[in-house]
Design a protein around this nucleic acid. Structure first.
Lengths: 251, 251
DNA sequence: CGCTCAATTGATGGACGTCAAGTAGCGTGG
DNA sequence: CCACGCTACTTGACGTCCATCAATTGAGCG
């Protein structure tokens, strides 16, 4: 979309251990499970329960709060935002999902999705029927372990933003986390493009949009960051990381 | 310990569907899995990987941050607090675990526990070797599903306190959540005993201890709550719930 | 009885939310 | 191509909630 989106023209998927529910080009899970030497029929089942979907235009909902839960989804391209609407009609952003990340895990324990998921830009995903995935996991310990880890990881992530941190720390942590996630996908860790609005960021960080704006300005004034519209560049990654460290704590 | 702890002398374990990793009297998991008609050898394995532990005195650590992760634990009696220590030496409380609740799920994705766990009063637990549990889950889909649900549930819970709520709302939500958890174990939902200090509550809710104290007083003044030392009683459960609702959102 | 530590209560200040006005992109239509 | 209007964003002024600091009370315990 923008000239900045991926800095290398071709993304370089890194095969990081065990975290392989993310790239659908060869079709998700395969990497995680192949490593364990599974029989062809199992892999075949895996391929069969995947449903590619998209491209979906920005604004399209993947699911809505209350929809019956039956599948989790891995983002292949674009950004997905999850949110809930409180009784006053306000939107509370729960998370952003970049390519390679998995949406819907928090729905497993209920019958229905607990939040809405909407595409922020043009998005393609793979859907996995969760019941089938679980059944398959029974035959593939590697897959089961992988799912356990994904779930467990999200518990930790959710706890991060719960702390009582300053607006600056929150914003820094948000940017550093984005940076790392882009880096893991082979994009530039120091220069990327925010696919979400200031309002979305603010809601996610539990700040006012005005505060996010002011923090960006302050960081720019101090030479920490270059911000222009939705394009950001770290000028001093180390200092940014120092700011974010208390929030991230080894994330 | 206190005259108030359990209001019925004998707790009444409720066999709520699928949520059975909690009562060790017949030994955890059995209920969840029996329902599915498993063979005796599987159940036998389940019993064998359980290690009863305790009673542990208040202040005893179940595990510490950085310890190698190998087991999760279900609380049988007492209260366990999990926390981390930030770089300034401050203690950040992550959660409280009552009888029937499971500790250590967030450790699964790493090699080590990400936090400390300490007994707040006299505690007994069951330890489950997680690798063995996972292996067993492979043969017992009911167990696997149960574990998935436990994990997924925790993701949702962690997100609750992340919202930007007032001190009153947070405290109300904390009390209501405790109330429900006690109720689920057969104790009085309107009158119980806080096993943790004001400081622990404050840290958990990301408030100052002084604020917690003031909120309690305000609630007492308004006739919402009776507080004496660590003993609390809801005087108007409905109003308390109204206060807490925005935070709990269907939890 | 006096020590100690948790809890309470009051006074003050700061960070951030709210309200309100102004600006800049950007698509649309004339 | 420019005017228009919309929306997102920015910037400033002000208010509020809660943290902080400090002093006091009260329980538990030797």
């Amino acid at each position: 979309m923008s000239s900045l989106e991926p800095s290398p023209a071709v993304p370089v998927p890194v095969a990081d251990d065990g975290d392989a529910l993310h790239f659908c080009s060869t079709c998700a899970f395969s990497a995680a499970c192949m490593a364990e030497g599974y029989d062809k029929s199992a892999l075949h089942s895996l391929h069969c329960l995947v449903e590619h979907e998209g491209p979906l235009a920005a604004g399209t909902h993947l699911f809505r709060e209350g929809d019956p839960f039956q599948s989790i989804a891995a983002v292949r391209a674009g950004t997905v935002k999850t949110y809930v609407v409180d009784e006053e009609g306000g939107e509370q952003v729960h998370g952003f999902f970049l390519p390679g990340e998995v949406i819907g895990l928090s729905a497993i324990h209920g019958e229905r999705y607990p939040c809405n998921a909407v595409a922020l830009d043009t998005v393609t995903i793979c859907r996995f029927s969760f019941p089938m995935l679980a059944t398959l996991a029974t035959r593939m310990p590697g897959l089961q372990r992988h799912l356990f880890r994904l779930l467990s990881q999200d518990i930790g992530k959710a706890a991060l933003l719960a702390g009582d941190f300053s607006a600056d720390q929150r914003v820094a942590a948000f940017l550093v986390a984005l940076s790392r996630r882009y880096a893991a996908r082979g994009f530039s860790p120091t220069r990327f493009n925010l696919t979400m609005s200031r309002g979305d960021i603010a809601s996610y960080l539990r700040l006012a949009p005005e505060t996010v704006s002011r923090v960006f300005r302050r960081m720019a004034d101090e030479g920490l960051l270059h911000v222009d519209r939705r394009e950001v560049e770290f000028l001093e990654p180390a200092r940014m990381l120092d700011l974010a460290r208390p929030v991230l704590r080894g994330g």
